[in-house]
């Protein structure tokens, strides 16, 4: 079953990615990205990581892409009219480096790995319960730090996003 899930979702994800890159207008690109993220959640499910899959759908496909769409809508003017450039950037780096990256990356790890059979996953492998006790156990600091990072992002977004208006205390 995992094999089927992996192949379909993997293919859809790559399709989404490719379409997103080739899109002319940003809005359609964003929608393709949402599609790719949801397919990626499927792949995570294939890897028996249910918690991460649901997180992916909720946070990535849901929150971030909605944010992107909001911003694209707000910047109504220049964003929509065929902004995708005729690649005035010198073409060759943009085209040459990614396939190179693929070769290097794939070559790198294929050197040591064979496609051995998929080991059976212990029961409740990726379940939220397992992640929770790890989260509050060994990674407690990370748990605290992530709240601070979000706080910083909050302050940052507020200070930058606000229009010039009288702050209550200034």
């Amino acid at each position: 079953m995992e094999a089927f899930l992996f192949f379909t979702c993997g293919a859809l994800m790559l399709l989404g990615g490719v379409m997103m890159v080739l899109q002319r207008s940003a809005v359609v690109a964003a929608l393709w990205l949402v599609f790719a993220f949801i397919a990626a959640a499927g792949v995570f499910a294939a890897l028996s990581a249910p918690f991460v899959a649901i997180m992916q759908v909720l946070v990535y496909a849901g929150a971030i892409m909605v944010l992107f769409l909001f911003v694209i809508m707000m910047l109504h003017g220049p964003v929509l009219d065929g902004e995708r450039k005729r690649l005035p950037l010198p073409m060759w780096p943009a085209v040459a480096i990614p396939p190179l990256a693929v070769l290097v990356l794939v070559g790198g790890w294929l050197s040591g790995r064979k496609a051995e059979a998929l080991p059976a996953a212990p029961e409740g492998f990726g379940a939220p319960a397992q992640i929770a006790n790890l989260l509050l156990g060994r990674y407690l600091l990370a748990f605290e730090l992530i709240s601070i990072v979000l706080l910083v992002a909050l302050i940052g977004a507020l200070t930058l996003g606000l229009r010039e208006r009288k702050l209550p205390w200034s």
Partner: peptide, 24 residues
């Protein structure tokens, strides 16, 4: 059966797509 290299290859392709999107 689906082995580890399959996932790693897919992730490499995705990484390259992202790289291309950023650059182009």
């Amino acid at each position: 059966n689906v082995g580890l290299p399959h996932f790693l290859t897919v992730s490499a392709v995705l990484f390259a797509l992202g790289l291309f999107a950023v650059m182009s």
